[in-house]
Design a protein around this nucleic acid. Structure first.
Lengths: 214, 214
DNA sequence: AGAGTGACACGTACGCTGTACGTACGTCAA
DNA sequence: TTGACGTACGTACAGCGTACGTGTCACTCT
């Protein structure tokens, strides 16, 4: 058995979260999973909050970039957005931990740097690039939060939402009429729809900016 | 003193959350705030999770609609999006509770109904309307989550982000160059930027759809 | 009037939580 | 050899959610 270390503790915490959910996690259970006493953890981690921060940071650092420098900038933006969704599929239950903690470490800074570079290369000025990035992050975080909340296991990408709930068509005519679209829910299609909407929107904005300058 | 009731308990819970944060909330403290025993709460609420659901539902139901049927549909979409942000300002600490719980009650259905009606009137078909709505909700939830996380008190709309953190300009040239834009952070401006992006994007999409049909 | 019934406030108790503190044991430096 | 230090661990405490039993009402039905 290798000696206890911060990395091993974080890894055990992630495993536990993925196996039993974010609510089930406790210092005692993490220690039990590692076969050590509870208080031994505190030699490597100051407290539980810091441990959860480390979990979020570790998950975020797994972000895989398959950037293609030759591709059109709109495609590169899509690729980077999908990369975020990718780790949410790898660590579904931990995703809730990631998005619900606010962290400003360098772990989250690398993707930011990449995204800003892509946007600057496309021709946006600094102000626009920052705003656009924040818009995309908001969209991605909101999307992942819904996906995680709706399907804790993430397994079926298509499922019935709110199976037992029936709405009164008189009170909610629109919702009732679209019940079919609400019932079948393809997360990927929904994500791609929003992503496409945003990418095309900033493409239009770039044209405007170029027109105003030239 | 009026008799204990579900409404009074939920109200006390919201007050406590706003005063001391979502982490500080416990059944014992809520009961103490109401001047009753802990177990009395369980005569009106099945458990803590249900109470938090009720909190989320109550906060969400405060959503104020100042819809203007005469306005252009793009403006009506903006108004409805801003209404969400409005309650986040009224109940900043509870907002975290709202967005982190997944609820499918009729409380959250009324705004959905309104939004879908607006989009259908604008000319979108059912499929597009649902996708667009989900995109907007993702963006709004993601935005509010960031605003809540960055400024727990919500008080200063302009503040320095990550005050002590200095980035290495060699590792992160883009981030370093835009440090100024990261440092000053106007939540409202950021939200409006993304909202404008999305509204214009769906306006373009509507034109495409009309062109394809006509 | 008396008996029965249900709703509700409450106290106690159990198993769980995070973590402060003291202790014991290993390795390395002087 | 002696001391210091890092680490593992046990104990202990305050606080948590809530299952369960008890007491006290208001009310209904005989």
């Amino acid at each position: 058995m290798p000696p206890l270390s911060r990395a091993r503790i974080v890894s055990a915490a992630i495993d536990l979260i993925e196996r039993e959910g974010a609510d089930a996690i406790s210092m005692r259970r993490i220690a039990a999973g590692l076969g050590v006493g509870v208080m031994s953890l505190y030699n490597h981690v100051p407290n539980k909050a810091a441990l959860l921060d480390a979990v979020a940071e570790t998950v975020l650092s797994q972000l895989a970039f398959t950037d293609d420098p030759g591709a059109h900038w709109t495609e590169r933006v899509r690729i980077q957005a999908r990369a975020f969704r990718q780790i949410a599929h790898h660590y579904p239950r931990s995703t809730m931990v990631v998005v619900s903690r606010h962290l400003q470490s360098t772990a989250g800074l690398l993707p930011v740097e990449r995204a800003l570079a892509t946007l600057r290369e496309a021709g946006f000025d600094a102000q626009d690039a920052v705003h656009i990035l924040r818009t995309f992050i908001a969209f991605i975080v909101g999307s992942l939060l819904r996906e995680v909340g709706v399907t804790p296991t993430f397994a079926p990408t298509l499922r019935a939402e709110a199976p037992g709930v029936e709405v009164d068509p008189l009170l909610f005519p629109e919702v009732g009429a679209m019940a079919g679209f609400f019932a079948s829910y393809d997360h990927e299609e929904t994500f791609e729809y929003g992503l496409d909407l945003l990418v095309k929107a900033i493409a239009v904005r770039l044209e405007e900016r170029r027109g105003a300058r030239g």
